[in-house]
């Protein structure tokens, strides 16, 4: 177990290191003066003194006159101090502040949709594997769902439930007329805005998990331990339970592997619903060429995915006894 965890942590540390390095490397490898390039396209701060102020600030931050290793070290130092630079688009708000405001919305949207879709998809998949009729219906539907681009389902839901039926708002996290307070009106309004983006993420992921579980269960029911139990006259109930317990393990690993796709899906879903998470921020940053904000989003996404991966690893250790016993059951 210790070996398993150590290896995982090593991989994640390396990944983070690599990601930060990429983040540092890219602006420095672009042709020309990165600061001039960047400021040339800043659309917000228009007067000359503001531009000059920004230029000085970034020149200090980039430290282009220093040797490369010094620049690199400084970059890490700033990172550990939580200094991700200052947003040019929301000047002079520090990037870290902008991101801190967005992250709760991401958590609010992503955590329930990921967990519920995983849970419901696995259970439905297991049921589908049992009934031919349900299988013939759920399987094709699930394939269509996994083939649907996230933003398109979001657009369709927003259009149909938001515009045609007028049941849900289609923009923002809460009504403009309200101020964030812990009142019932506000919480209900928050949930009202949350529902459609949540549903579109939930529905697509649900399809993927249902297919995965169905295929895994069918595979496990054919496995030799299932056949042995059948030969010994064990009831279907016990055999199915064992198959499910075994099939859930690759689904947990699968969650870690799919996380990147789900996060990408959440980004575009936020764009569709103007939901003020990192995805929405990112679009604004890209449109306003705010590189520090883009970098910050990048780091936050990577960090979030790494933390989630680590949590999944911990869960895996709890669920798969083989990792606990020092037998490497899983090689990811």
């Amino acid at each position: 177990m210790r070996r398993y965890l150590t290896r995982k942590i090593l991989i994640y540390t390396l990944t983070f290191f690599l990601a930060v390095t990429i983040d540092w490397l890219i602006p420095r490898f672009m042709p020309g003066d990165p600061i001039r390039n960047m400021l040339a396209r800043v659309s917000v701060a228009s007067n000359a003194s503001a531009i000059q102020m920004m230029y000085d600030y970034y020149a200090r931050l980039f430290g282009l006159d220093l040797p490369l290793w010094q620049q690199y070290l400084n970059f890490w130092k700033a990172l550990f101090q939580g200094n991700l630079g200052i947003s040019t688009y929301l000047f002079p708000t520090p990037v870290i502040e902008v991101l801190k405001r967005a992250v709760p919305y991401d958590a609010f949207l992503l955590i329930p949709s990921i967990l519920l879709a995983w849970y419901a998809g696995n259970n439905f998949g297991a049921i589908a594997a049992r009934s031919k009729r349900l299988d013939n219906f759920i399987l094709p539907l699930s394939y269509v769902l996994t083939a649907t681009p996230y933003m398109w389902l979001g657009i369709l839901l927003a259009w149909f439930f938001g515009i045609v039926l007028g049941l849900f708002p289609i923009a923002g996290a809460y009504s403009f007329s309200l101020r964030p307070t812990w009142s019932w009106t506000f919480v209900l309004d928050l949930l009202h805005h949350w529902f459609l983006p949540f549903a579109s993420l939930f529905i697509i992921d649900f399809g993927g998990w249902a297919i995965g579980m169905r295929n895994m269960i069918i595979y496990e029911l054919e496995a030799e331990y299932s056949r042995y139990l059948t030969a010994l006259g064990a009831p279907q109930r016990l055999i199915r339970r064992y198959a499910f317990n075994n099939a859930i393990l690759p689904q947990i690993t699968g969650l870690a592997l799919r996380l990147g796709v789900i996060v990408a899906g959440a980004l575009v879903t936020e764009v569709v619903f103007s939901y003020p998470g990192i995805g929405y921020l990112l679009l604004a940053a890209i449109q306003n060429q705010d590189y520090f904000l883009i970098q910050g989003c990048f780091l936050f996404i990577i960090l979030g995915v790494l933390i989630a991966n680590f949590v999944i690893d911990l869960v895996y250790i709890v669920v798969d006894p083989r990792t606990r016993r020092g037998m490497v059951g899983e090689s990811a």
Partner: peptide, 19 residues
């Protein structure tokens, strides 16, 4: 394994944003 963990989109994002 490292490339597998990094969300593809995040990397594409940072590259594409600078070009």
């Amino acid at each position: 394994n490292i490339v597998l963990v990094i969300p593809t989109l995040a990397v594409l994002l940072i590259i594409a944003a600078y070009l």
